[in-house]
Design a protein around this nucleic acid. Structure first.
Length: 273
DNA sequence: AATGCATGCGCAG
DNA sequence: TGCGCCTGCATTA
């Protein structure tokens, strides 16, 4: 369930539960991370950081390779709990335990021990992240404003902007009335500024609530006199996974299409080329 | 029981 | 552009 807000929230939660400086028990019940887990076992968790959909955990092991680089991919999941930890299932790639908490990681695309230099290389290939204070949106706009590629594809390109996934993409384009097939170079500077500012607000709220809500107060079901309806993914949205349903604003049918092997959703009436 | 699907991404061609 | 990979859950038979 990972877009950038999820990963930033995970960084906060790892630190809150395991960042008190005490020794962590580190295991890999599944075995694929067993060597690294043995190396880290008994050291403290000293930092947790996110850039886009990448999570970095720093342990106090006196070793050159002391960052754990985690990427959840499409299926990866992290689950926290209070001790006593139940016996781990055989899909748990990484388990951390202390006196009060445990956390299980399963199904990640990436879970690897890396050096600080390797971590820097990951940062270098990622675009600005609306959730990071050091992010420079002009870097993203420089690429977008020169590109013939659709804005829908550009928003999903982590080299251009880091952390936006399929839900935020669909929703932010709807909120700004932009057709997903519009070319990047036809996005105005003021439009981009508004999109970026909106992503900062939406994604911060996503970190706080741990879900994606994008519907403005005046368009909520209550305000519009409709029955409340929360999408399966957990939040209230305008278009994501609402194919063929009526648009919350104009009542027209929400459209869907395949774009680069992902499902795209938009309202052809409210969103313009 | 089998199938399909998902908020992702890297690779081959 | 299509395919494979990681897993769990809902839907279908």
């Amino acid at each position: 369930m990972p877009e950038g807000h999820t990963i930033h929230r995970l960084a906060e939660d790892y630190l809150a539960r395991f960042g008190d400086g005490t020794a962590i028990r580190v295991t890999s019940p599944q075995g694929k991370f067993a060597d690294a887990a043995a190396l880290l076992d008994g050291t403290p968790l000293t930092a947790a950081e996110a850039h886009g959909k990448h999570l970095f955990l720093h342990f106090g092991a006196p070793d050159a390779e002391d960052w754990v680089h985690i990427h959840l991919g499409l299926f990866g999941k992290v689950g926290f709990g209070s001790t006593p930890a139940p016996p781990p299932t055989d899909t748990v790639r990484l388990r951390l335990r202390n006196d009060t908490s445990y956390v299980d990681l399963r199904g990640p695309t990436t879970c690897a021990l890396i050096t600080d230099a390797e971590k820097q290389a990951v940062h270098a290939r990622l675009g600005p992240d609306p959730l990071r204070p050091d992010a420079d949106p002009a870097l993203a706009y420089a690429r977008i404003s020169r590109s013939r590629t659709t804005i829908a594809a550009l928003l999903m390109d982590q080299r251009i902007i880091a952390g936006v996934g399929n839900v935020y993409r669909a929703e932010v384009l709807f909120r700004h009335g932009i057709d997903p097939y519009r070319a990047g170079r036809d996005i105005g500077a003021a439009e981009w500024d508004a999109i970026w500012a909106d992503l900062v607000v939406l994604m911060r709220e996503g970190v706080r609530t741990n879900r994606i809500d994008t519907v403005r107060p005046e368009h909520t079901p209550q305000a519009m006199g409709r029955p409340p309806r929360v999408d399966d993914h957990g939040g209230e949205v305008y278009v994501y996974r609402r194919a063929h349903l009526p648009c919350h604003l104009c009542g027209g049918e929400i459209r869907t299409a395949d774009l680069a092997a992902r499902n795209l959703f938009w309202c052809p009436t409210c969103q313009h080329r």
